[in-house]
Write a protein that binds this DNA or RNA. Structure first.
Lengths: 223, 223
DNA sequence: GTGGCATTCATACCAACGTGTGAGACAATT
DNA sequence: AATTGTCTCACACGTTGGTATGAATGCCAC
């Protein structure tokens, strides 16, 4: 579930976000002619492509923030495409990855897929297969981005809560009554109500159901 | 993602369940000696194996209900292992699948992994690789089973709700007040309270937070 | 030290929730 | 025909939740 747990909780407040930027396909391959070929292929279907001759070149370029995906050759100068795929995760670049290879084998493809690759295409591949893979990758990225931005909004609000408010929120969303919470924290019931109200206000929850879903979304992101 | 949304909601009531049956590895391959080899390999690590010479033989055997996984050759008499993998899903057999092949290629392995295979092993493989794959598969199955049985328990309870109770539950878990629900359904507030109470009782929810999580779990299963 | 923030609480009031009693209507089943 | 289940509602009572007023304490930073 990861859930699109929060579906429409925050939509009205988060709507005017720039989630509709045109997607960019980042092509990393040391073969010049293949880069040019892919660039024009993607342009032919209305997609913007940026190309890089090596992993280093990709990394020293401006870090991609908009939606898109990465098309990666397995054999790159200096680093394996598979290793680079993992490195991207560590760097916090979660764009979906498509791998290509001229001399690949099954274990290689399995490793890539286990690591979350969208597709693994042996060269030569058909143009349509690449386009299908990129389309799938971009859709996946869009979904990721949407749930990510919603989760981020919830986390941002959560950060504004005081320690006490967080404690109370945890117990409230665990289904406990104010009275029980007061006993558990050694407080009076009024105080609990105040923290509870503050948590609702700061989190932007219009109902307890909202708050419960936000709490669950927070748990999912921590795991 | 499916969320372990419900973590401990039902534990106290569902605990004495037979989720701790020993796992069974189902081996489907037409090569006799390989079947025997795998059977003794699995026995050597304390796993029970059942073997089948073909997909048909597997299907006409007693349908597996306990935990485990399926080890499948890609080339089977009559049907491709990849097609069989998909067929198993359609039949509602969701045991994790590991594929083996003597003459495989990359697209084959990619297709299998996309379809959710745990691993795809070219023959000959190392014993340890197979054991690792099976271990991963069985763990995955355990997680699936746990969340599945919890979800089933919630669904079973939901089925006992009357239509009105379901309507009210939906609106309650959407965060609406009794007053609003009454207006929306053209009812008096008392009536809403009665349905609401009945829903809580029948669902076994001890708090609104519980009910909200159950409602979300139901949505996740429907999707 | 003064302002700001977090935390705590009493009192009080109103809104919302939960449940029980009692009852009428309708449909389907036995 | 009787039963069962669903759906409906009025009335009443007690509990729980939400908020405002007013106030006290302690801490940290400017």
């Amino acid at each position: 579930m990861q859930r699109t747990t929060l579906n429409l909780l925050l939509v009205d407040r988060e709507m005017p976000q720039a989630s509709d930027q045109p997607p960019v396909v980042h092509v990393v391959d040391d073969d010049d002619s293949l880069r040019f070929g892919l660039e024009s292929l993607f342009r032919s279907v209305g997609l913007t492509a940026r190309t890089y001759g090596s992993a280093q070149e990709f990394l020293k370029a401006e870090r991609p923030t908009g939606p898109g995906c990465i098309v990666l050759d397995v054999r790159l100068p200096g680093i394996s495409g598979l290793d680079f795929q993992e490195e991207l995760s560590d760097l916090g670049i979660h764009l979906p990855v498509i791998l290509m290879t001229g001399h690949g084998d099954i274990p290689m493809s399995v490793r890539a897929m286990k690591a979350g690759a969208v597709d693994f295409l042996p060269k030569p591949f058909r143009d349509q297969d690449m386009i299908d893979a990129v389309t799938t990758a971009i859709n996946r990225d869009r979904l990721q981005r949407d749930s990510e931005s919603q989760a981020t909004a919830v986390i941002d609000r959560y950060e504004t809560l005081s320690p006490r408010e967080r404690e109370v929120m945890a117990l409230v969303t665990a289904g406990k009554m104010n009275k029980q919470i007061a006993a558990e924290l050694g407080l009076s019931e009024v105080t609990v109500k105040i923290h509870r109200g503050a948590a609702m206000r700061k989190m932007g929850a219009r109902s307890l159901a909202d708050l419960v879903r936000m709490a669950d979304a927070l748990k999912d992101r921590t795991r």
